[in-house]
Design a binder for these strands. Structure first.
Lengths: 195, 195
DNA sequence: ATCGCCATGTAATACGTTACATGATTGC
DNA sequence: GCAATCATGTAACGTATTACATGGCGAT
């Protein structure tokens, strides 16, 4: 049900078409939650049926039309309820640690490559999220700008602070992964020296 | 395909029944990878069809029987191939960070409870994994003991080291989550003082 | 006999990915 | 005119969760 809440979260900022949502899931919000178009369009239709959002057909160019969704009062309530409910944790399912636990079956070079790939992946994510934080702090982020329209200075600060804090959490997680993988490289070096 | 590799990983230690696998997914290996029985039994049958494992029907009590699966040479090869292939990363999908980014919509108490629940959850996991590391290090872990049978001192040390290292990674991740959530509590305190 | 564990499944539903498909609009 | 972008979907498949269901074994 988190896809639904990710969509509601986005629509609390401003009305959007399915395509707008899709674009956001590829960049900004997509750094926290990603979904493909094939999942977005059907879910938006279901949410409209459930009364969480309202779609209006607006003209697009000469003949074309598009559907713009706005969050309803029921949608806001549903989103709030999710945020106020205790979190649910799913069971562990960690392919990276699963692999690491059985590296005695891999070749030394493959093991080292694995940790290097892990470092590269998370380093790239750190850069993405740091960029994201920059656009949040200097308010160059258009979605945030829209969200802050008509808000007091204090409110704006509060809203921004939670978003920055979320991305800081992502960065902290990624940095822990990088440190772990660096230790992994040392471990491989130590264990596979004579191979 | 990671469920399949988690099953292969387990069966590299010793032949097991579906139920043995299920039990392991609730405890030891389950701390890294969990799966319910409804997923395990069908997958084992598919793997047997694909020639990765071989099932033999063995008696159980007077009339009962059970099916014990052993990994085949093809299974070992498939497992090795997975370990030697570069890792694949799926897109981000982080419900915790999604929530955190929108806490301006939650009540101050719900926000604080959220972070406290996060700390409690990860603290419990840290304890699980620390216990697990203890049983790995002192070789009281029966699955590991079976795995190390007939191995040289050096080999045994190598095999154990990777498993310990995997769990250390889980612990590091959890501790980062705890630190982040503690900062979250401070943030809520600071932002929601006047509410 | 009854309870907890061992053993094995089916069914329904949800969630997620990949591939396939189409057509209009805007900008060069 | 052509390419990139905007816009919206379907289909097939794979993965995961929850609920429902059954029956033998071993110990008290």
């Amino acid at each position: 049900m988190s896809l639904r809440n990710a969509l509601l979260a986005m629509l609390t900022s401003q009305p959007m078409t399915g395509y707008d949502v899709y674009k956001n899931f590829q960049t900004s919000v997509g750094y926290v939650w990603h979904a493909p178009d094939s999942q977005i369009y059907p879910e938006l239709r279901r949410m409209e049926q459930d009364g969480l959002i309202r779609g209006e057909t607006v003209p697009w160019g000469k003949r074309g039309t598009k559907k713009r969704y706005s969050i309803t009062e029921a949608g806001v309530e549903s989103f709030r309820a999710w945020l106020n409910a205790p979190p649910e944790y799913q069971r562990e399912r960690d392919p990276v640690r699963l692999r690491a636990a059985y590296l005695e079956w891999a070749s030394p070079t493959a093991s080292a490559d694995f940790f290097r790939a892990h470092i590269a992946y998370h380093s790239a994510r750190v850069e993405d999220w740091e960029d994201m934080i920059r656009t949040l702090r200097d308010h160059s982020n258009p979605t945030l700008a829209k969200r802050l329209e008509g808000k007091s200075e204090e409110e704006a600060e509060r809203i921004t602070a939670y978003k920055v804090f979320a991305y800081e959490g992502m960065i902290a997680r990624a940095q822990t992964e990088i440190e772990w993988a660096e230790k992994g490289l040392e471990l491989v070096e130590r264990l596979e020296r004579r191979g």
